[in-house]
Write a protein that binds this DNA or RNA. Sequence first.
DNA 1: CTCGTTTTGTTCTTCTGTTCACAAACTCCT
DNA 2: AGGAGTTTGTGAACAGAAGAACAAAACGAG
Lengths: 246, 246
Amino acid sequence: MTARTPADGSPHGVASVDGVAGRSSGREIPEATVARLPIYLRALTSLGERGIGTCSSEDLAAATGVNSAKLRKDLSYLGSYGTRGVGYDVDYLRYQIAREIGVTHDWPVVIVGIGNLGHALANYSGFRSRGFRVVALLDAAPERHREAVAGLEVRPFDDLEEIVAAETVAIGVIATPAVAAQDVTDRMVASGISSILNFAPTVLSVPDGVDVRKVDLSIELQILAYHEQRKAVPDIDDNPEQEVIA
Amino acid sequence: MTARTPADGSPHGVASVDGVAGRSSGREIPEATVARLPIYLRALTSLGERGIGTCSSEDLAAATGVNSAKLRKDLSYLGSYGTRGVGYDVDYLRYQIAREIGVTHDWPVVIVGIGNLGHALANYSGFRSRGFRVVALLDAAPERHREAVAGLEVRPFDDLEEIVAAETVAIGVIATPAVAAQDVTDRMVASGISSILNFAPTVLSVPDGVDVRKVDLSIELQILAYHEQRKAVPDIDDNPEQEVIA
DNA sequence: CTCGTTTTGTTCTTCTGTTCACAAACTCCT
DNA sequence: AGGAGTTTGTGAACAGAAGAACAAAACGAG
Ligand SMILES: NC(=O)c1ccc[n+]([C@@H]2O[C@H](COP(=O)([O-])OP(=O)(O)OC[C@H]3O[C@@H](n4cnc5c(N)ncnc54)[C@H](O)[C@@H]3O)[C@@H](O)[C@H]2O)c1
Ligand SMILES: NC(=O)c1ccc[n+]([C@@H]2O[C@H](COP(=O)([O-])OP(=O)(O)OC[C@H]3O[C@@H](n4cnc5c(N)ncnc54)[C@H](O)[C@@H]3O)[C@@H](O)[C@H]2O)c1
């Protein structure tokens, strides 16, 4: 039996109740907080590069566009890493967040589907600089295999199992057409991958214990369109010519 | 004064309380629901293409990976478009959702920053097929202007105002490096764009009334990494070699 | 050492979103 | 026509997240 990941946020099926007063490892970080930690991490890196050694929750909130109370609460899930009256040590906090997220070491990643989007991803330097190492580019089409993209050769999709085993890859990225995505997913899961980032506009079925996150451009645009329509037409139904300035 | 959009979901600053029992236009669709409507829309299109004329909330829930009660409640915000004992008419519901989102007509879109990612976006057919028409590709670098990408020429960024005015563009996509993103945003907003999809890993400041949504690959991967680390090491802190099967 | 200032960590309240459960509404069959 | 079987739409309970507010802790000035 397969468990579909919910369409929205929560990728996990973990029971969030631990009746034992959760002391052992102590941490039960809410999903919403987890989603913001990378934002703080990036802001702290930026502050650090600008030579700033200490910052208050207010500073960091301003840099990330987050409410400062929310930010402090988020950070409090990791521990007490601030100093009252002073703020947070930028480098120390950055390290603590990185450790919590698990990006103190590199994660090997495979990308499947080296078309338009796959090329862009392969060339994306932000991957590497944030703790992710692309170890292989895979594509089913033989004519792709002659190419080298971003210093890596494009390899046959059938090499997947071998590569995953050799590099203990846990994270896979899918940039194939939607029709192929479920097949690719099944092969990934069978080979041992347990986290998938999916760019294909389709719902993936995965067994329990496998996380899927999807990035869907059209959905983002449609959400914008919804709000845009609302702005333009406050009352009438289907007449988007009229521009109303509030 | 600028209002930062919250890091997470809600792009709007709308007051959600309307003490007057909200009858006039009747609709006050929750943000979480809005984010799912495009998913339903896609599933319905797919069902329609397969010749399926009617579907129950259970069917649609299975196709989209959403809880069926949640789905029914989502749809109930749009109106009563189902028939008890029968289900929903696929085409009719699809149209109603499309109308609610505002994709019964095309939205003109400009893409700024035609590098790796911009190329992929320009070539993406899913744009057009889902109600978004790319009217211009803009880039600051003169050497890009010789190119034609996906049947459109790459034009100088300074043409922005002219194009936005001529086509009444409301939606802009930013695929420039992070350092340029705020400048591009300011120009977009000044020219009349009021919805922005941002691929650059940076927080944008925009005035009230402008929506920003961001797509951030690294954040998605880091969220996956967090859960992955959790799976691998249930108790110890920093030793990701050990693989534990629950 | 004491006071005033700053800023964290946390509690409490409010809001938003999810899930359950069931009456109402519909179809089909006899 | 009536009853059995479906499936919607929604009220109510529950869960999770956000924001306001403040006590406790640190620091620096005097
Ligand atoms: N291009 C974009 O900007 C963009 C944006 C959002 C979403 N997407 C989605 O991303 C996916 C890829 O888009 P694209 O524009 O790069 O498409 P594309 O057609 O250019 O590339 C797809 C690649 O996948 C390969 N492929 C097909 N079946 C495969 C399989 N079974 N195993 C391995 N590889 C396989 C093809 O050979 C091709 O190289 C699509 O699902 C698309 O909807 C693309
Ligand atoms: N490539 C990816 O897969 C990927 C993934 C996630 C995020 N991103 C982000 O998307 C952005 C673009 O990535 P990329 O790989 O395409 O970068 P890129 O360097 O290939 O392309 C950037 C383009 O923007 C243009 N540009 C620079 N400044 C500009 C300005 N002020 N006005 C207009 N155009 C300008 C450049 O001329 C260049 O063509 C970056 O912020 C990157 O972090 C990229």
